[in-house]
Amino acid sequence: MCAVLLLASCRRDMQDTPRARTFQESKFFDDRMSARPLPAGTVSQDYGSYDELLETGKIGQRVSEVFPFEITAEVFARGRERFNIFCAPCHGRTGDGDGMVVRRGFRRPPSYHIERLRNAPAGHFFDVITNGYGSMYSYADRVPVRDRWAIAAYIRALQLSQGATIADVPADKRAELTGGGPQ
């Protein structure tokens, strides 16, 4: 009797209120999505007024050779972290194109260290991340604009690192390398 009375008081109105929580199924819209798709032609206001170089990697029709903001050590660190999250699964941590997903059978992307990509302008990498390329899907919905530029900067650093000689290392840091560090 007690148990029946206790159970009768079990309602979940407070736990599950009628408001839509993120990505919850909707009973109101025909397509059952509470998160509404953006109307066509929506312009992001995330970065203030529209900045062509920042958001497309192009100046007019030409792919930009320059970055839209200063590349500091923090930007490199951010680029490295984001590269290892989003790019390394296919491109590998050094950019050779032998990431784990490629080893499982995905089409092998070109190495960053080939002549064509060494000479490619910075905006090219931004454009590929934004719009995809060949088998690679767009990462525009996963990587925000500034992070895409940070990744492009880190790819530049990877390219430099693979062609670097001992002469590129500051004299006071060379001693750290003679111990046979990571190859």
Partner: peptide, 24 residues
Amino acid sequence: TTVETQAFAGMPPTHTCMTCHSVL
């Protein structure tokens, strides 16, 4: 993707799954 910036950690759209599974 939004776990560092938003309340909701983010559930991947099917587009993310298909990034690899269009081939694999």
